[in-house]
Design a protein around this nucleic acid. Structure first.
Lengths: 333, 333
DNA sequence: TGTACATTTGCAAACGTGTGCAAATAAATA
DNA sequence: TATTTATTTGCACACGTTTGCAAATGTACA
């Protein structure tokens, strides 16, 4: 095992004070260019690597950004992770991924860890349990920059990047009515979460503006899994059945669609279907599946840039950016 | 912004030496239980949080594990990320995700970062460019524990977790021959990567043992994307067409299958198809898609445990664990 | 030669924590 | 009471880096 070489080792070897070495390695103008060269040569040839822990202690900051998501598995979030991982590296930050598993107390623990480690900033999407903002407020107290994306706490004064789910869902429902579907159901998540609340608003607005008597919102209560989707479908399709479904979750949709297939319900004739999701495999479904695509890349970029701005200057005015969604109609409705 | 309270602040306030405070917070037996209580009460009521940077410097270690993958996007890797994220948290480690984007030089940079930050360990799957082990060897020189999973460097003396791709692919090909397919093609990745090399071995073994004159391995040359899949399919299906395909990548398969559909080739009659991948959506394809499931959870667990063991004791004998795959035959072959 | 100024280097403290060792105090034994 | 032993606390340094300030050296000018 190789012994780590430090700034002091270099100083000792070259008979120079370690502060000079430090300055040389930072290309400080105050150190002679010859000694600078001497030091840099020695450093590279002996494989000197800065001890980031010491730097962190000294500077009272850890060059690390946290990305806090409810669940790594979901395509949307894993795409966000991928984009932000790359941007963070380019900007000279390390990125730590945390998943709350949709639990508020895990979220609290994570926030404590972030504070203890003096992270520079956090990009977060809250768990489905979270209603209270006190945990996240602690971050601000400890001078950690915070930006929300997708699932946010509206009352907090931080920058946010969200989708325009209300208008999009309204538009989708309108399209369905135009295609002669009469009884549209909306499978959605807990309405205390902004994302679902907004989508539900759009749905309701469309129902109302079409004077439809059929308004049905099914709330996904457990996890966003295929099994839960099957459970929901079996319930929903028993009686008073809708003739079209807008579903807020791709995984849930997989479950619902498998039940629709098993029951022999013809799509799109007897059942129109469209769901949120970005999986390219939908082109291979029969019928090919209409989807509403989240602009994950755009969301990632905006959120990351807002965070960087806030890190550079805490007084940057807080923004809320609304990202439009893309409706991709295929055969399923 | 709240000022951070330190051990010395507590010491000052209670008129006790900070070393005693440090010991009390670690529940050291040498400090009186009354003062211990006094200190702990003060700490919690004043929201003391340990400064992890100072601890790291002092201990010469950062309680962080790196997970290095070629690409976060792939379901297999994002599943691994999810499992290891949770296990790391439970074991008291933070987890930093790095993606090499399949580039060896990005991998090198990442390894430097890991060393600089004195990470405790690394769980890695190498990029498709990597053939040289010198970068990874640096980790060992600097006393960073290393475990490989899936894509490994065979010559390195570290623990490894890999799939049993050779036997599995052999078995799959045998099944196809049994189902009267005669001309089986194998779409695979670069053969300098163990994963693909092994699968190709299994494929070739099956071809040979069936005395088939048709042996065709198509190497995926660019990225593992749907578009690349379409490109490959258009080439492959032009002439001298196979009657069955084993594909090593799910994303590539999406592209191939879409071309097969467009060309009106009937599956499974004219074209048997099976691919590696874990996406539950395959049940909704027409025909439902046969897959070979990677035991991602099992791989994650084994890799993480091997790393922990190596962290605890560097002299733990190195193991190579081979995880069996699960062949899920559906309608497509 | 002396003064002013620019360039280059060294000194020392600081960041917050952990720990070996010594010192102080209390309790127990002869 | 004197001596040993156990318990509790304090001292001081270390981890590797950064940085304000002072010191030293060099250069230019009167």
């Amino acid at each position: 095992m190789k012994k780590r070489i430090t700034i002091k080792d270099i100083a000792l070897a070259l008979n120079i004070h370690h502060s000079t070495v430090s300055r040389a390695l930072h290309d400080d103008s105050r150190v002679n260019s010859e000694t600078k060269k001497l030091i840099n040569d020695y450093a590279t040839s002996h494989g000197y690597k800065v001890n980031q822990n010491a730097v962190n202690l000294r500077n009272g900051k850890h060059n690390v950004i946290a990305l806090l998501v409810p669940n790594v598995h979901h395509t949307f979030f894993s795409n966000i992770i991928s984009y932000i991982t790359d941007m963070a590296k380019k900007a000279g930050y390390m990125l730590v991924i945390f998943q709350s598993n949709e639990k508020e107390d895990e979220e609290k623990e994570i926030i404590d860890t972030i504070i203890q480690n003096q992270f520079t900033g956090v990009i977060a999407s809250i768990s489905s349990e979270t209603t209270d903002s006190s945990n996240f407020k602690k971050l601000l107290e400890y001078n950690v920059s915070l930006v929300f994306f997708d699932r946010i706490l509206e009352e907090m004064n931080v920058s946010k990047v969200i989708e325009d789910g209300e208008n999009c869902t309204y538009e989708v429902a309108q399209q369905l009515y135009k295609r002669k579907y009469k009884r549209i159901a909306h499978i959605s998540g807990p309405s205390h979460i902004n994302v679902f609340r907004n989508r539900q608003r759009g749905y309701k607005r469309a129902v109302k503006s079409n004077n439809s008597s059929y308004e049905k919102i099914v709330i996904i209560e457990n996890d966003f899994s295929m099994e839960e989707g099957r459970r929901i479908a079996k319930n929903l399709l028993k009686n008073d059945r809708p003739d079209a479904i807008i579903c807020d979750s791709f995984n849930i949709s997989i479950g619902i669609l498998s039940v629709i297939n098993e029951m022999g319900i013809k799509s799109p004739e007897e059942m129109g279907f469209i769901c949120y999701g970005n999986d390219p495999a939908v082109n291979l479904f029969t019928p090919t599946l209409s989807t509403i695509e989240q602009a994950d890349k755009e969301i990632a970029i905006q959120a990351f840039n807002l965070l960087l701005k806030n890190i550079e200057n805490k007084n940057t005015p807080k923004k809320t950016i609304k990202i439009p969604l893309k409706i991709c109609l295929r055969e399923s409705c």
